[in-house]
């Protein structure tokens, strides 16, 4: 996955409604399992429903699972924490639809998955925030932007900085002769370093 491609949008890590600052709320609101009662492709989903679903519902009373089937309705009645439907659809591929509190819904094909896999996908849905998947951006970077390079070049090419370490580092980073006119003022340039560079900024603030 390239970082510049259009496939994934980029963004910062965030929690819906500052979840967890006050109290934690499970973001999965509704789970609908659609499957076929006969077809082999739904085998894993049927196994999951027969063996795991009730346990899942008992553990997570906040998630509404829709059940239509008669037999399971009895189970659901016995467990007041869970009310359930399952949507059987003849000869159609099994599908999972998870709806989240932020209004998003995620749709997932469960075709030919075994019980274990179905279980894992449902666990994933339970622990998701429901936010759109994004490529995470970081608040820091370990390279200067082009603009910063242009601004800082005069410093790099002359050993302006009183601190030896910074000067050495700077020279290593830009092995360029003086290509641009001097910055207007040395103070300003130092102010710039402290503003733009995460590492040098800290160092220069400490030293001067």
């Amino acid at each position: 996955m390239t970082s510049s491609g259009p496939i994934l949008k980029s963004g910062y890590l965030k929690a819906p409604l500052y979840n967890g600052v006050g109290r934690f709320v499970c973001q999965l609101q509704r789970l609908t399992l659609k499957f076929c009662k006969e077809h082999g492709g739904s085998r894993g989903v049927r196994d999951f429903i027969e063996q795991d679903l009730l346990n899942f519902a008992r553990r997570n009373p906040g998630v509404v699972i829709d059940f239509i089937e008669q037999d399971l309705l009895n189970f659901a009645r016995r467990n007041p924490g869970v009310v359930m439907y399952v949507k059987p659809r003849r000869h159609r591929s099994p599908v999972l639809k998870a709806e989240f509190l932020n209004g998003e819904h995620h749709w997932l094909s469960l075709h030919s998955m075994d019980r274990e896999e179905v279980h894992r996908w449902i666990e994933l849905m339970r622990t998701k925030s429901g936010e759109q998947m994004v490529r995470l951006r970081k608040q820091w970077r370990n390279y200067p932007l082009k603009q910063e390079k242009l601004n800082l070049l005069p410093i790099s090419s002359r050993s302006y900085l009183p601190n030896k370490r910074i000067s050495e580092y700077w020279k290593k980073m830009f092995l360029v002769k003086e290509a641009f006119p001097l910055a207007q003022s040395r103070d300003l340039s130092i102010a710039m370093i402290s503003r733009v560079h995460p590492v040098l900024g800290l160092l220069s603030e400490k030293r001067y």
């Binding site: 109290r23 709320v25 609101q29 009373p61 906040g62 998630v63 924490g81 009310v83």
Partner: peptide
Amino acid sequence: DAELYAFGKRLG
């Protein structure tokens, strides 16, 4: 009814 029940449970 189930939705109402789950609403309370979800928020604790």
